[in-house]
Design a protein around this nucleic acid. Structure first.
Lengths: 132, 132, 132, 132
DNA sequence: GTGGTCTAGACCACC
DNA sequence: GTGGTCTAGACCACG
């Protein structure tokens, strides 16, 4: 699992970490039961404050994505994969819905919006293929 | 022009005001040249601090959406309507693009995404018609 | 004497009026002893608040540029012309000095500054001839 | 970087700070990437309100002179030095032009103006050398 | 520790 | 009346 942080990005670092871990779990990059990097290791590796890592792990723990195994470290919870997948779907759905609603509310034409969507989709697909 | 604030929402109050004013200008609810509520009036009406309103107005002023007429109040700038409209289009486009990209990156099938989009669109249109 | 106000300009209206009256006196457009427009007339003509005109006239009066003739209006004081001329010279000198000082303090080369000055002078002369 | 405020001066404190920071950046007193004093420190040091410093910093941030590093402080932006230098040149040029124009418009003789300029320049240079 | 936001209340210049 | 500036002091998110 390769994690990274973007300091310039407006998103809080701990939130970036949370997202990336959830993403990795949903994708199967890390599987339930597997250990994830220790707080200290990850902090050193990313050159960030251990408190920040700790905060991310705490939230993941409270969401039952990872669990603390005393004396050994943090491991991915058993039901985590499915949960992360549905979480992401739900989140994506909500965000998509919000954008569409605002567009419609501001009087944007349906066909115009469809066109924007299709153009965006093609672009995203190309971009995705290029990076993989 | 009816403004409102949602204190519980994470968004800063002054930013909510900025958005709503821009929205009203883009929609033609207030037209260029027209006066907008005075700092004190709006603060009283929304039960918030005048400084918060002031801050929103100042930023709108620096973006040349409104202008200060000394001793008289704040008025919508002449070129503001067009600017607010394009601003919103650009913003919507970016947000839509971001959602699509993340969906594609997370391996969502194009047809599945299109389906979500169409269902969201229908729902948004119904919702919009109901409220108008 | 033709007075005008520029609302967009940052300078207070009453100060614009003061300047323009002094300018007119210095130029001999109005001569000592001559009457100047009444507060009400001028306010109506420029579509500004009578209070603003009043304020300008009061300050001019306290500087002994104009005097109030009871029941008749405001007139230019006898020694006003000379005073306005020297005032303007002094003011211009101070402003020029301030700009030069800041330029020098910021490390601008003397020859570079001279060049800017000469270019500005030529431009100003052309502009002045064109408008006259 | 040594900042100071003059409360008696008509210029708003936050604007004085903005000017001084820009000046320091243009002069290279602080270099891109370097941290500038924290809001609280500067406020304490100058015996002014943290909000006032905050306001100055926010405006500098919106002009992309400095950037906020979350939880760490404010740092000078990479492209800031050049921008501050050109800004100052432009501003000085405009102010010089304005003075010259008014002088010409008021009928001042070119040679008389040149004389004033040269005298002012010598004086400014002496003053500058004395203080350095 | 840092910056970001908000409230409360004051004084000023301007119209 | 209007906006513009400032102070004092609070709470929050982030590292």
């Amino acid at each position: 699992m390769q994690l990274s942080v973007d300091v310039d990005n407006g998103m809080p670092i701990y939130e970036q970490l949370i997202r990336q871990v959830k993403y990795a779990v949903a994708e199967g990059v890390v599987v339930p039961g597997q250990m994830i990097p220790s707080v200290r290791d990850l902090a050193r590796q990313l050159a960030i404050n251990p408190n920040t890592v700790q905060r991310a792990y705490q939230q993941l723990q409270s969401e039952e994505i990872i669990e603390s195994l005393r004396g050994r470290g943090m491991a991915v919870c058993l039901g985590a994969k499915k949960q992360c997948q549905t979480d992401r779907q739900t989140l994506l759905g909500e965000r998509l819905m919000a954008v569409i609603e605002e567009a419609v509310r501001s009087g944007l034409d349906s066909d115009r919006l469809r066109e924007m969507f299709e153009r965006g989709l093609s672009k995203a697909i190309r971009k995705n293929e290029a990076s993989s």
